[in-house]
Nucleic acid binder design. Structure first.
Lengths: 291, 291
DNA sequence: ATGCCTTACGTTATACGTAATTATT
DNA sequence: AATAATTACGTATAACGTAAGGCAT
């Protein structure tokens, strides 16, 4: 059997043309290459080179070996990559989500259901997430609405209602709730949460959203300014309530959404316990409000 | 890099299920396998087995590796087979010749000198043969005259003298020998032997040569007709003598030639024994005539 | 003189087997 | 007891580098 280190050296010679050049590329000595090339010839029982005393050239059989060597080496490399990939997949769960708020409660549930695995979370738009589920680059995804694709299993997670937090002395702070019309010409501090921001920009083109991507900057601005702040019921439950402010519901049909947790239908059983704990979580979240 | 002996052992485990069984199949010890399996895991940086203290089972990554291992090992095997095949193909000796008659005695000599090689003969003009020698597409060549090229080694083979075989009752049959003038306006049955035919057509433009390319057709025509037949001393020695005919020497300066066997000067030693046997052949051919 | 291939020799790395150990059936 | 995997240890193969030689440009 011809070992791979020999094929690698043979391939290097085939690519670089001389043993000395190949030896420099591989960081080994020329004599080592001479010996290896001799070895592969005796092991195969045939000559692979024309020997010109001075120069070494592949003969026809050598060219055949060079082709195979290349393919075999490439396969070996690919084997390692693919094996490491599947190893990662068995040791960690990738959770995609269309909104940051949605993952906050899911990561603890996942680590509880799969104690031996680490959890990787990624934020992406819905369509991207669906693609990722299908090509196994993520196993679970939080989406807006129930996906129609039959290959996907999904379960309702929770609803989110938009709120606007206003300083106590703000002209609008006395109202019960707000409409889109109330917010015309206003500037609202907004953390970049993808979906919501895009939706509101579209539905309320006359309102200006001061979009922040850095958490600390956002917090500082919230405390230091008297600007209205973009908010939601779920964020407030998690404690994101600006000081000295009142939060009013934004009463529009687009200002609430339902999140769904999805996975491949074929992997549903695998995540059964996780979905159960999600259901329990939903129950405990929505029951107090309903009562 | 994962060496092939490891992949072979891994594949054996994948196929036979236990290390001990695999070790028996491969005729190596169990500890050797334990070590190798450990090595492939550390080299790849991931686990490939579930370890049950008692039993060893492939995990998902291990199954991926098993698939690749199988393919890689098969490719390595195929590589060796294909290389040996092309080696065999290059290990047959190609003998080029400017004349058919010249190869008849050389092929037996070659098969005797190189019992492990097969002999391929090809007929071509002298200039083509010289090119082929230089680019290694033939190893030996029979040429008219000694090549001047210093890169070529050559050795005189034998001379050939043209004869014309005539029916016993032919008007010319009483002569001692023939001249080109005698043959004007005659039609002569001629087997297509390249060099001679072209030479005679040029030197005797008024004679018509009825050129035949099929051996059987040629023989039938020789027997069924009363036409003169193109012949030579060497062909007659080989028994090509038409029935009821007399063969007269064509006495012109162009009607005899010397054949030389040539090879690359750099490969002379390789064909040393062959050239010796050619010399012996020449000796036994020309001595009886000379004495 | 330089570049390329080869040979010779000593060193180190490593793949192997034997023997002993643990655990499971 | 028998089978399977592992650990420990000594051995032998063989891959490597250094040094030196040959040969052609």
């Amino acid at each position: 059997m011809i070992e791979l280190y020999i094929l690698e050296q043979f391939d290097a010679f085939a690519r670089f043309g001389t043993l000395s050049r190949a030896s420099r590329e591989l960081h080994i000595s020329q004599p080592a290459l001479t010996r290896s090339m001799k070895k592969i010839e005796t092991d195969m029982g045939i000559a692979l080179f024309y020997r010109d005393k001075r120069k070494l050239t592949l003969n026809d059989a050598g060219k055949v070996v060079a082709e195979y060597a290349r393919r075999i080496l490439e396969d070996e490399r690919e084997m390692r990559v693919r094996a490491v990939e599947t190893d990662r997949r068995t040791h960690m769960i990738t959770l995609g989500s269309c909104a940051v708020v949605a993952v906050n409660h899911l990561v603890p549930l996942l680590t509880q259901s799969f104690r031996d695995k680490s959890i990787l979370t990624e934020i992406a738009p819905d369509d991207v997430l669906i693609d990722r589920l299908k090509n196994h680059s993520c196993q679970l995804a939080v989406l807006h609405g129930r996906p129609k694709d039959k290959a996907l299993f999904s379960q309702r997670y929770f609803s989110e209602q938009l709120y606007i937090s206003l300083p106590e002395k703000h002209p609008l702070s006395g109202k019960n709730e707000l409409s889109a019309a109330d917010l015309k010409r206003l500037s609202i501090l907004t953390f970049d949460v993808g979906f919501w921001v895009n939706l509101c920009k579209e539905k309320m083109p006359e309102t200006s959203f001061l979009i922040q991507t850095d958490v600390d900057t956002m917090n500082e601005l919230v405390n230091a300014s008297t600007l209205p702040v973009f908010n939601s019921d779920r964020m407030m439950e998690d404690g994101y309530i600006p000081q000295n402010s009142v939060s009013l519901k934004l009463a529009e049909d687009f200002s609430s959404t339902n999140y769904y947790v999805a996975c491949l239908e074929s992997e549903k059983i695998r995540y059964n316990t996780f979905f159960n704990s999600v259901r329990a979580e939903v129950f405990s979240m929505e029951k107090p409000q309903g009562s």
